[in-house]
Design a protein around this nucleic acid. Structure first.
Lengths: 224, 224, 224, 224
DNA sequence: TATGAATGAGATTTCATTCAT
DNA sequence: CATGAATGAAATCTCATTCAT
């Protein structure tokens, strides 16, 4: 079945090519500015061909969104293995944001697409990005819930914290930070500045959530 | 002349009618979903008539945005008069967000329109919403800077806080909170839930920014 | 009846004011670029008021066109009185073009409006600018016919010339010269250059139409 | 591959179809009267399809203008090869106008479109019809300059003639002749009459520009 | 599998003209 | 006499999506 194998592989490659050029285009021009034509041109396919690989423009974006989120989750899960308590887990979460951002600019895509999908409620076509539970944000949110829960349980976080509620908030804020940066044209994005802004925010949140007994040194994030 | 007066008043009323229906439509369907046709239909005017009152679609949105922001600023400034120190000023700021939100759902419009104007970098037409300094967000940001500066000076806030930097972050976060709620279809917005979510966020931020000497009771916001 | 008189006079003055500002606007921005709104603004009337004095936009333009033409005709007729033969009459005609142009830039309006009315045939609303015989161009053409006929009769022009046919051609050419200059924005019109170009053209035409016996000195036009 | 060939050819044919119906419509109703909708209807395409073949309405007009001019230039250049001196070259130029007009009524389109592009000064978008040097009129003007220069050099034209200046004038006049005819509704255009009018004009110009020594028989154009 | 071709539906904006007051 | 207000009709252009080949 070598032939079928190869065909499948090649198909997958073409699919990926589409996703890659789309990602690149979004990173360069922003999600609202690109059309199927643009993607087709960049991928060196015809517009019609795009529809052989994806059902719609939204499907392409949803895929990119999901892939980015999964990558971030995998990256973070890996690092979380070394966490010894809940507070340290949160620090690792922050570190992961900073680190992932440093290593992969993909993250900028995240909010752009999310905003595109959800630009303020619209006549919701229920299945847009898939069911609630599978939505990229949900996956990330569940990761954050786990981290918070751990902190609440081992007492390293403020007792008053409700993991579910706060996880939503954290997701919202981190998304906003990225969104904020992502609104700049690519060439204007100053990695150092963004990192700095992220870190300041995370430190405030860290201090705001840590149990009051927490040792001071654990309340600031080291410059990477 | 009473007659000229009346004409002027009526004209103002029609202008307001346009703004009101536009606001209502945005609140119901989101900013991207509405067209000049929609506004015209709802206002029971012809499309052409809209252009008698506003130069362009963007002008309508900008007006709504600016008005909302100004109302919020006025509301907050008034309340800030009673602040006795920087920390209490911040608490009043949070209270103002909560109170303004409770009194006027207009606030949901804010981010929707802001995102519309600034949907991720684009070839910026410099004068879109007016010059930097006059932009609604800028005005609010300057208000926040003032509050923070006061707290830094009187020692009620963490020494490490940089008012300008943190003001940006706060604006970003508060905007995100509203944005987050605004993304829900109108009928799904549960005022209580949103309020609760806002308050939790503000409390984390408050704790994160307050000087460590701060008395515990000042670190939580009273349910309104 | 002093009152009625005065009213009539005032009405006439307002009418003239409209024509004057319209003329000025056309001279500045070109006929296609101006709207009833522009005229109304400049005249400090409302758009509706314009319709009290003129039936339509076209009526305003037609009036301007007619007035300009009449002024030119009067100017030329006056000077033609001193012509001693047909050839000299033509020279005076040319001189009049040059002189009228020098004295009154109104002439630039002529073709702009004519082109507006007649931008290449359209579903002709027969009465647009009035009946054939009263049309400004017709009046000018008849003047030219008279001049040519005189030249043909006294033998100072080529015998082969058919006054009616050639009058049409001359009108066409002179119109074209003006049109050509009128296409430039007002501030770019170099009176000297235009005059020069007009003169060169007229000299060719003069030489082309004069009887071959004509004395050389009569074949060039003196620089004014 | 024959298949690619065919596709290309068909595409070219459809493009031509659009140009042809546009030309036809312009010839029938004048350039200002037609809209993209009209062209689409006549070509039996949707409006959107037109934009697959041309970037804008202006692009369609520019193409027609350019093609017409190029055809005229080619036609004239070919015939100019047989010119033995400058005066005869000019006669050939006149003949070409007459002949081209007789063979192809397309020429009527020329001025209509030119006026559309240049309807009395406006804020010139520099690249409207292409750069100065490439503009259809410029090409024709350069052709005329060449012809005149030859006549000046071999003494068959009046010594006083300045080729550049006079070329502009000639272009202006010839354009005016065509323009004049083109303003008539198509069905009123009497080819014989127009030809006659053209010829009379050219004869005057010829006599006006020829050196005085020129033999009389060279000063009239034979009826074709 | 790939694509060239086509399109429906919609967006914003402009302007001469009318009419009640 | 003057006008504020309103509008119908049009114009250009864009884009995701479909379908026959």
């Amino acid at each position: 079945m070598g032939i079928a194998e190869r065909k499948k592989r090649e198909k997958e490659e073409r699919r990926k090519r589409i996703l890659d050029v789309a990602k690149e285009l979004i990173l360069d021009h922003g999600v609202t500015a690109i059309s199927m034509q643009d993607i087709a041109d960049a991928a060196e396919f015809s517009k019609a061909t795009l529809y052989l690989y994806f059902q719609s423009k939204e499907a392409i974006l949803a895929d990119i969104l999901g892939t980015s989120a999964d990558a971030f989750i995998a990256y973070t899960e890996e690092r979380l293995k070394s966490a010894t308590d809940g507070l340290r887990a949160i620090r690792i979460l922050w570190d992961s944001y900073l680190g992932f951002f440093a290593e992969s600019p993909d993250i900028f895509i995240f909010t752009g697409i999310k905003n595109y999908f959800d630009p303020g409620f619209r006549p919701a076509k229920e299945d847009d990005v898939g069911v609630e539970a599978d939505r990229p944000e949900s996956k990330i949110r569940r990761l954050i819930v786990r981290v918070l829960r751990r902190g609440c349980e081992d007492g390293t976080l403020e007792a008053s914290i409700d993991p579910d509620k706060i996880a939503r908030i954290i997701l919202m804020i981190t998304t906003a930070i990225i969104d904020d940066a992502a609104r700049l044209p690519r060439e204007d994005r100053d990695a150092e500045l963004i990192r700095d802004s992220m870190q300041s925010t995370f430190e405030i949140l860290l201090r705001g959530m840590a149990a009051s007994s927490t040792e001071r040194s654990l309340l600031s994030l080291s410059p990477q």
